[in-house]
Nucleic acid binder design. Structure first.
Lengths: 157, 157
DNA sequence: GCCAATTAATTGACATGTAAAATGACGCGC
DNA sequence: GCGCGTCATTTTACATGTCAATTAATTGGC
């Protein structure tokens, strides 16, 4: 039996039991490598992936957002948002403001400094996205998206 | 312009800038959802993904392994291994043994209890792998692996 | 209007992941 | 046979992610 690449990469002794397993592990492994790369890029600017995501969401929204609104657009769970915003606030990339109508709500707003940081990152981030799938042709990139979206349908049932 | 699925899922206001970006975000998002599912399965057995991976590696190897050997087969960085093994040892799923020839080396060995836990998980894990790509046909599953492996070539240069 | 259920956010307890530095052992070269 | 660089592992310091429980504020039903 021919040895797959992932098998070799991880020095696995035994071949994968099924093509499904191989695909899933390939997916996780690739995602991990990509996240790692982005992590390195962001750390050069003293932020993390999650922090970048929060800033990006705020810029996309174009106006202050409540914490839960931000959490809703991220993959993660609510409690993590608090500390994330704490650290962004400490770096003066966002500010918190209590809502007057509903004092339970905290609005988070991106600062000019935050916008400046995002602007600096726009080009490198886009370039990295492109590089990460640079070995694939345009049709292959679209095919990859298609397959991933189709696979993800199991989660929406 | 037609709205993509990922865009809708995350309530994004703006479409993706490029197909490359869309593919990368699709990849990360899908990986995250899958990891989440596995996390839930493992937590029912009181272990985590990483802990499961360590046990799996030890069983694959078939004999005690040094810590660095384990770290080498995982995606992660060395320092994390220590705590991971600490917790597995506390649950009596592995034992540590100092090498007599080279006292710098710590061998980690899976216990019968660890093997038993793995055996219990084999079927559910395989089933979950299959389920995660259950929306894809067999050829699509293989195509997905192929695309991911090809994309990952940028990392080996 | 008043109390219970709900909602927004935060906190606390853990498990991980990353980087950088420290510890303890080995082993080669002179 | 000693010292210095290297190696395996651990420690420390931080940022995250998960869950469960708490606080504060609102709202709906009666």
């Amino acid at each position: 039996m021919a040895e797959g690449r992932l098998q070799r990469e991880l020095n696995r002794r035994n071949p994968f039991e099924t093509p499904e397993q191989e695909a899933v592990l390939n997916l996780l492994r690739t995602g991990d490598l990509i996240l790692n790369r982005f992590g390195r890029l962001f750390s050069e600017h003293n932020i993390t992936d999650s922090q970048y995501n929060v800033l990006k969401i705020l810029r996309d929204e174009g106006q202050p957002m409540p914490s839960l609104g931000i959490a809703g657009r991220m993959v993660q769970v609510v409690p993590a948002i608090t500390g994330l915003i704490d650290r962004l606030e400490a770096k003066e990339l966002v500010v918190r403001r209590r809502c007057v109508q509903d004092r339970r709500v905290v609005y988070v707003e991106i600062t000019p400094l935050g916008m400046k940081l995002l602007a600096e990152l726009d080009q490198p981030v886009l370039a990295l996205h492109t590089q990460m799938v640079g070995k694939l042709s345009q049709p292959e990139v679209k095919q990859l998206s298609r397959l991933l979206e189709k696979a993800r349908e199991v989660f929406s049932q």
